[in-house]
Nucleic acid binder design. Sequence first.
RNA 1: GGUGCGUUAGCGAAGUUGGUUAUCGUGCCUCCCUGUCACGGAGGAGAUCACGGGUUCGAGUCCCGUACGCACCGCCA
Length: 580
Amino acid sequence: MNRDHTCGQLRKADEGKHVRLAGWVAKRRNLGSIVFIDLRDRYGITQITFDENHSELVKDVRNEYVIEVEGTVALKATPNPKLATGEVEVIASSCKVLSTAKTTPMIIADETDALEDVRLKYRYLDIRRNPIKEKLLLRDKVTTIVRDVLHKDDFVEVETPILSKSTPEGARDYLVPSRLYKGRFYALPQSPQQYKQLLMIGGMDRYFQIARCFRDEDLRADRQPEFTQIDIEMSFADEEDIFAEVEKVMRAIFKETKGIEDLSFPRIKYVDAMDKYGSDKPDLRFGNEMVNVTDLFKDTSFVVFANAIKDGGIIKALVFHNACDKLSRKKFDEFNEFVKVYKAKAVAYLKYDKDAFSGSINNAISEDEKNALKDYLKLENGDVVLMIADKKEVAQVALGALRKKLGEELGLIDHDKYCFEWITEFPMYEYSQEEDRWVSAHHPFTAPRDEDVDKLMDDKANCYSRAYDLVLNGYELLSGSVRIHDSNMQAKVFEALELSQEQIKNKFGFFIEAFDYGAPPHCGVGIGLERLVMILSGTDNIKDVVAFPKTASAYCLMSDAPNYVDQDQLDFLSLEIKKD
RNA sequence: GGUGCGUUAGCGAAGUUGGUUAUCGUGCCUCCCUGUCACGGAGGAGAUCACGGGUUCGAGUCCCGUACGCACCGCCA
C-alpha cells in the first residue's frame, strides 16, 4: 500500500493522525529551509510541509513526480479557503519518489496555458486537470444513474455486436475488412438500431445499452466519429410510454447531478418548430418567435419583397426588444454575411425608436406597411425587426440561425436554465438532391402517422412520421420513433424508398424475415450521452467530455490513429492500396 | 467537397509601412529566502518564425501551394 488516505479527504478532525499519502507533485514552493508541496490525486490536493529537518528529502523532487509521503496531520496557521483540504497540512517525515517526470509540455492546473491540440496530444496530462477529470466523473455518474433507473424499471442491458453489417441508408459506415471472407467487410454500427428491434422480436421487451456508435462523417464541435448512445427500446409501448421513461431518466439525472427538480417537457410538432424557430432543435431558453409577415406586404412596391412573394416565398420577421442601441450598422452588415451561409440573400431590418422607424428598408416600404408592421408585431420603442424574404425553407432556417446567434449575443440566454422540448411528427421522408430520390428522414423502420399511411407512396412531401427528438437548450439530445412492426407496412416503405427487392433482401433480409415471426409493437430512443454530459457540465465542446477524442479531421493526435499498416497485414486481408 | 481564421522558445502570446541583436508572460535550470498556498528576489539557458516555392538588395512580415489545428456550410437514416 502506497497510501492510507487520498489527497482529498483529510479535514480538521484528522489532526494528529499519522498518514501516508501518494500522488503527483502539483506545485513545489521552496522557501529556503522549509518546502511546501501540493500533492495531487484524483480526489484533491493536500499540502505537504517539509520543515528544516526534512527539506533535503525533496531537494530533487520536481513537478509531476509521483511521490509517497508519510507524516502527521496538522492544522494550518492560515487556512486556504480555496481547497477542501485547506485547513490542514501534513508535516512530512519521509518522502519516497515512486516515479520521476520530465518537464510537462503544458501547465497542469485548472487554468492551463495550452491550446486544445497540445492538450489532445498529451491527453493523459490533460486528464489530471480538474476541468477534464470532473467531466469524466460526471459522465460516469450519468451512466450510473441511467443504469439504476432503467434496471429498476425492468430494462435489461444487452450488448450488441460492434462487428456489424453495412447499412445502405444513412451515414457513411466505418468498414472493417474480413480476413476469412476475402473482399467482404464488417461495418461498425452507426447505432444498434436493427439489433435492438430484433431483441424486441426476441421478447426482450425492455432493453437498453450504453452503446458505442460510429459514423464516418465530417465532425463538428458537438460531433465525434465515435460516440456513445444510451440506447433504449420498449415493446408494447408507444410515444407516451417512452416519453415517460425518458423523462424519468432525465429527472433522475438532473436531480442527482444538479439538484434540479422543476423540469418540464413541452411538446412541439416539427412543422411548428420550423415555423416559430426555424430549427428542429430550437433553444427555448429565450422566446423571440419568428412571425410570418408575408400578408402585410402582399401589395408592396418594394421589389425585393414583391419578388420573393411572387416566387412563392415568404417574409419572416423576428423582433428583439431594447436592441436599437446594441445593434450597429456594422452588426447588420455582419448579419448579412451570416445569413448567406444559409443561402439567404440578405437581412432587412427596421429599428423602431422614439416613435419613428429607421433602418435598411425604411425608405423602401410605405408608411402604411410600417404601421401595419407596428400593429401586427406590437412594436415598442427600442425594438429591432429583422426580416428575411425568401423561399420558405431558406427564410425559416436563416432567420432561425440568426435568432440563435442574437439570443446569445444580446444576452437573452440564462445559462443556468435547462429547457427541454419534445419535437414530434417529423417528416417521413426528405428529398436527397444528391441521390435524386426520397430518403428516410429518420430511418426506414420508422412508422408513419396513422393519418398519413395513404400518403406513404403518393404524397411523400406531406407524409409525417411517428419520429421524435428530445431537445435540450438547442441541442438534439435524442432521436427516436415508434417502429414499424408489420411486415406489409415495412415492405411498403421500402418500396417508397425505391429500394429493389434485391437490395432489401441483401441489406435487410434477416431483419425483414424476423417480422414474419411475431413482432410486438415497439418504440425507442437513442440518447446522445456526450451531448447530455456537455450540457450538464456547461461546455460546448464535445472533446471535453470524451476521454481520448479525435480532432475535427478524425485524427488522434496522441496515438496518431489512423496509421499505415504493414504490407503483411494488407496481404492477410487481400487488400491493395490504390496509388494516387 | 466548400468557406473563414490560425501556425513565432516547452507552453501562451506580441512583432508597426518588408530593414539588420525577434519581444513579453509563463514554464525550465542555478542561487538566496522558515509559513507559502499563482510564494517572493537575483541570474541563466532556451527559436529551422509549420513546410515548399516565389517576389525583393533584403521576408517572421508580401504572393502561391502543401500540411496541421479550430469553427462553420454541405454531410450526420
